[in-house]
Design a protein around this nucleic acid. Sequence first.
DNA 1: GACACCTGAGCAACCGTTTGCATTAATTGG
DNA 2: CCAATTAATGCAAACGGTTGCTCAGGTGTC
Lengths: 388, 388
Amino acid sequence: MPATIRDVARASGVHISTVSRTFSAPHLVNPETRNRVLACAEDLGYRPNRAARALITGRTHNIGLIIADIANPFFPPLIKAAESQARQRDYHIFIADTNEDPAAEEDLVHALAKQVDGVLLCSPRMSNSLIEQLSREVPLVVINRQVTGLPAVVMDVGQGARLAVEHLTGLGHRALALLGGPRGSWTNREIRRAATAAARAADASLTVLGPNPPTEGGGLAMAEQVRRTGATAVLAYNDLMAIGLMEGLDSLGLRVPRDISVVGIDDIALSRLTRPKLTTVATPAAAAGRTAVDMLLQHDGSASARAGRGGGRASTTDDRRTTAQVSLQTELVIRDSTGVGPAASADRPGAAAPADRPGAASPARPGPHGHPDPGGATTAATPESVAS
Amino acid sequence: MPATIRDVARASGVHISTVSRTFSAPHLVNPETRNRVLACAEDLGYRPNRAARALITGRTHNIGLIIADIANPFFPPLIKAAESQARQRDYHIFIADTNEDPAAEEDLVHALAKQVDGVLLCSPRMSNSLIEQLSREVPLVVINRQVTGLPAVVMDVGQGARLAVEHLTGLGHRALALLGGPRGSWTNREIRRAATAAARAADASLTVLGPNPPTEGGGLAMAEQVRRTGATAVLAYNDLMAIGLMEGLDSLGLRVPRDISVVGIDDIALSRLTRPKLTTVATPAAAAGRTAVDMLLQHDGSASARAGRGGGRASTTDDRRTTAQVSLQTELVIRDSTGVGPAASADRPGAAAPADRPGAASPARPGPHGHPDPGGATTAATPESVAS
DNA sequence: GACACCTGAGCAACCGTTTGCATTAATTGG
DNA sequence: CCAATTAATGCAAACGGTTGCTCAGGTGTC
């Protein structure tokens, strides 16, 4: 029913190849002819069938974006940034939600494989080896994960977690808890590793709880257990969990930050609206989305390799396309959900002023950068199985 | 590079058509042959190219879902429901975000048109006439909009708005404000129409403010103006705006619900987590997603016309596919953001019991159902241009 | 005036599938 | 034993485009 290239050819009295060229290589066709063809096309409401075009060119001009859970407010900014970046290069983004289910992730990659030029795998929950295997089927860029040989953009949550722990210990907290996220999350491991190290460096204890679903519900349900740890400050895997936790703490009769301090990770819009406002680690989600699209598309279109915020890391030339791994910096945003610990009581009235940043990046201890070291966790309460 | 049907044919020593049939019509091929083919396919990692298949069958097994703003927590439940419903029928959903931009909507429909079997247009902001025109290009199901001749699923926010207003007037409020949503929103018009009627019926005044962006920011920015109306209760276009408004009111020194009552619409998860917890109109987003997918797919796959919650409405047989319009019921969820008005003070302690529902649908005034009447609004502060 | 060169357009093969039809072999009925 | 049916497979034409190649005609050069 919709007009095809043949209809246009017939209407304008030229061969279909001329019509084709009118659209894909205008300079090869006589301006006069071109205008006639364009007029006919307009008339008939013709639009090139991108799927058919893809069949022969091999480029669909579509990008797949696989997300663990769109209901998590962390993702929309990333999605929107990726979309607008893609649109600029005449690409479209197909989003798919996996409900945090590794099996769904795999299915989706397969389903998308032939309809897109590449897939952005966002906070994947499946194993590294599976990811590597899938990457032979369709170009992949992973976000919030490091898998050797694959281009990746990660947010340096390790750094953020360290900042958060330092902030808390600086406020006098000695008993800390870490509210862990979902099994299979690279981010979760990074956070645990960095938080553990930072706590040890400050001579504070850190109890790790988890894995948990990374949602309000997940945080809410753990309130009782958090209390039982006796911690006076807790770092949550993400803002959603932190918010749920605060809610749960509240119904347990514990006041934040008076009785217990809470810090989240992500800095979702919502964290500014809770009461108390949430202290959190801001992650550059939008920059990550943009960068990931750029990395996926870097090899074809006109070069516009806009660098993301934060320092680019290693850039190993692998087989034939450069597989870079970009790490984006995070920063601590201090609001009202953190306050002085029991030791320093009466010292300060309410929330802490943003003045205290105990020696960021102490030179004695090299940052968590470098090659991924296996089994970095030490105090892990519950072992998590993550491949390689 | 990926294996094609030809590779499999060569490997298993049969013609490509046999391979094709092995997948799309297994009963037509000898079990022995079939197994051999399947083994080879497995071996080579062959997967049918859905795009190529679509070219000839005309069915892509993809559905497009166009959303005004994924960052709005109202949508994720709808999206997830649609996805799972689609998956059951071996369809995949491609989500796209328009940033509330009508032009982006149109582009997206065009881009999607050839890659999907149909598009779910969710809370569209473009004109009805444009939608009708686009529907000639690809099967459309609209959500939260009524356009003649097109299948639609709407949530009866009119009813919900009426309930909300009755709840407020029942609490003694006489000066009401309506915090309007975005231009071009059908939902917005419905709400205004119903709220206006309900307010008039209860002899209360209603000041309409808008249009506004349907976000926290949009609500926050209007706090001052809301105060200036002198209203003691306000109904917001959605929960996000209501939450933003509460925040703004708070920084103006107004307490909710003591000084002013606020009710939202949507019942997003977040509305349970704010303090005070938000009174709101629950809309069945998930059911809408499911129903929309069903309506789009009703004509092909095995019949499983699961009816959505709420009463189905008119079902006109149009050209050749039945274009039904389903209306889903909404309900009022009373929480803590609404309290007694100035007139009835000291009467009741806190929130109202759900006992008060003054004469629903007073017979003197026909309900808001029926053909859309032009210019139904009376006290509208700012005229909105919406086609047809 | 012959030659090379360039421009613009047509021809046809191809991308990876599906599917109506033709072909062959095996089975059945009479 | 032959005809008719059935089952299994092959053949080739689509689907809607793209693209290398060919070809005709016009222009410029010596």
